[in-house]
Design a protein around this nucleic acid. Sequence first.
DNA 1: TTGCGTGCCGAAACCGGTTTCGGCTAACGT
DNA 2: ACGTTAGCCGAAACCGGTTTCGGCACGCAA
Lengths: 356, 356
Amino acid sequence: MGERSVNLKALAAHLGLTVSTVSRALNNYPDISPATRKRVKQAADQLGYRPNQNARRLSIGTPETVCYLMPRQIGPNAQPFVAQLLAGLGEALNERNWDLLVSQADASVGDLASIERLVKSGRIAGLVISRPLKNDPRVKLMQSLGCPFVVHGRTEKSDDYAWYDVDGEDAFVTAVNHLARLGHRRIGFIGAPLQYQFAQERLDGYMRGLSHNGLAQAPELVQIAEFTDEGGTAAAGLLMDLAVHPTALVCVTDMMALGALEALHARGIMPGKDVSVIGYDGLHFGKHAHPPLTTMAQPQAHAGRRLGDMLLSIIDGADPTKFHELQRAHLVQRSTDGPVTGNAGQINVSEREDSR
Amino acid sequence: MGERSVNLKALAAHLGLTVSTVSRALNNYPDISPATRKRVKQAADQLGYRPNQNARRLSIGTPETVCYLMPRQIGPNAQPFVAQLLAGLGEALNERNWDLLVSQADASVGDLASIERLVKSGRIAGLVISRPLKNDPRVKLMQSLGCPFVVHGRTEKSDDYAWYDVDGEDAFVTAVNHLARLGHRRIGFIGAPLQYQFAQERLDGYMRGLSHNGLAQAPELVQIAEFTDEGGTAAAGLLMDLAVHPTALVCVTDMMALGALEALHARGIMPGKDVSVIGYDGLHFGKHAHPPLTTMAQPQAHAGRRLGDMLLSIIDGADPTKFHELQRAHLVQRSTDGPVTGNAGQINVSEREDSR
DNA sequence: TTGCGTGCCGAAACCGGTTTCGGCTAACGT
DNA sequence: ACGTTAGCCGAAACCGGTTTCGGCACGCAA
C-alpha cells in the first residue's frame, strides 16, 4: 500500500530530464555537467530515491550477492560460530554493498541439486562452503559450474581451490606434545566420523604426536562418535572402562570434551588431576566447565572476514589456487590438564611434578 | 568463462519457439497445448535451464526474499541462537523457494538508514527484527515504510505489529516462586540494561514475584550489567559483598548466570548449596557448568519457523496485529538451586526442608 | 461455401535500471 | 563568417524474464 517507492522514471519526470541522464548523473559519468549532476543528486536524496537492486543487478550482469551454505546439523547444540562467521562475511560484503544470502540445502532436494539451482539461477556470484567432507562433492560441483567459491576448512586434496582453515593436525601434535611433557604415555583420542576432513586431520595430528614422542599407537585408544556432548560422554566411557585406561584424553571438539568430563565425573575421576582432558575450539563456554576446560583455541574471530575478502578477490578474477590460508591454534591452559599421577589405574609411570 | 547458463532465449531458439511461448509453457498457462508443454519442459531440464531470478523477480514485482537483521553484539560469546533461528526461517522460506538475506546494519551508516535503504531498494519483501529495545525506532520505521515485518521479542507497547516472544515476566515470576518455596527471602536480580525490553520484562517479573510472595523489594538487590559472563561476575560480586547478601540470584541470561557462578566460587560460596542461582535461556552448555546450571528454558527450537510463517502470511496480506505468539519458559532444575541454609551470612530465616 | 469460435502461438509492452550512440548547442580557433 | 570541437543531454537497445493482446489456422455448424 502507499505509493511504490520512487523509481528512476519518477525522479526523471520530477527533474524534467530523461532517465538516462539521471542515471548517468547519479553514477558520475563525465558527460554530465556538474550543475545538473548536483541538482540530480540533491533531488535524489530529497525524494529518498534508491535504485531497485533487482533491476540494477539484472542490468549490471552480476547479482552482487554471495551465499553462505549453513552446515546442516543444528538442534540443541547449535553452531556457535555461525553467527561470528556471518558477521565477518557481512563486514567484508558491506564495503561493496553486496548482499549475503544464507541457504541450508533443502532437505527434499538434496545438497547438490540445490546448489546447482542456486548458481544457475544467477542469484549468487560466489559461495562459502563450511566444514567439508574428506571428499566433498560440493567442491567438484562448484568447479564444474565455474562459480567462484571458498571453503571454510579443507578437503583431502585441497590444492585447486581457495580455503581458510585452522591447522588441526598441528594443533593435535601440540596437544599430544603438551601431554607427553606432563608425563602421559597413554593418551586416548575422542574423534568424529572420519568422513569429515577435520576429523581425519586431527586424528593424523594425534598419531603424529604419538610417534613424535615415542608413544605406541593402540587402536583401542581411538574412539569415534558424533561430535556432540553425548558422543563425547559415550566415547570417554568406553575409554575409561578399558582394562588399562588412558591417563589423558584429547577431544576433537570442545563439545565432546565437555561430554567427556561428564563421563569422568560419573566414574569419580577428577579431570585435570586423575585424567587430563584437552578439547579443541576455544569455546568461550569452556571457561565455565567443571573444571575449566583446557583447549586448543582457534582464532576464528577473523575467519568470516578473511573468507569474504578471499571470495571477493576471486570473483574479481584472482586465481583461487593462490588462496590457502592456514592459521594455527594455540593451547589455552585452563584446568583439565595436569601431570600424570600414580594412582591412575594403569601402568605406573614415574611421577613427576611438572611446572605449569 | 564458460558459456553463460542457458537463458530463455537460448531455450526458445533450441525449440524453435518464441520466448513467450516457452515461458508460458513452463508456467503452466492453459493456452499451451499439452504436447508442446511437455516438449518444452523436457528440453528445459535436459538443458538444465533455470530462470534468472533477478529478471524473474523484477518482472514479477516481488523480490521473494526476506531479511534477518542480525543483532549487533558478537565477539567471543557469540549468539548461539542465531544459527537455530536462521535454520527455522530458512525452512519456512524454502517451501516457497524464497531467499533469506542476513544483514547487520553497516556501522558506518547506522541501523535506521541501512534498513531504509534495504527496503527502498526493493531487495526484500519482509524483515525479521531481533531483540528489540523498549522503544525501538526500527519498528516505527518499518511501519512508516509500510514494509511487512515481524519481531523476535517485543517492545514496550506491542499491539500494532506481529511478534513472537517468550514470556520473560512469567518466567521470572516462576523462578522467584520456586526460590521462595525453597525458603529464600532475600533474592538478588542480575539484569541487563533496561533499554532492552526483555531486560525490563524480566525485572518486572522479578518484582511481581517478590510481592506475590510477600517479599520486600530492596533497590540494592538489583544489579544491572552488560549481558556477558563478565557482566554477571561483576554484578554477582556486588551483590555478594553486600552487608547482608542475598541467598539466591536470578539472572537475566544463562551467560550472566555462568559469570555469577564464578563470583561465588571466588568467594568460596557453593552455588546451589550456600546460594542458589537461576539463569534464563536453557542453554545446552549450562549442563556442563559447575555445578550444572538451573535455568528457565525457552522453547526456541521453533522460533525461526514460526517467525517465518508469520512473516509470509503478513506479506500475503494478513493483518499483522493478529500475530502475537507468546510462549512460556519452563524451569529446568539442575543443581544450582536449593533450599536456603542457615549459614548464609544474613538474616536467619527458619530453615525448612522443601521437597524437590 | 461462409461465418464463427476455439485452440494455440507470436508480437510487443513492461519491470527498472545501465550503457552506447548520435545529435544539438555553444564556444572556439582561424 | 564558418567549420570544428567540446560539452551536454536524449533516444534507444539491452539485461532476462512475465503477461497481455492479437491473429492465424483449424474445426464446426449454418
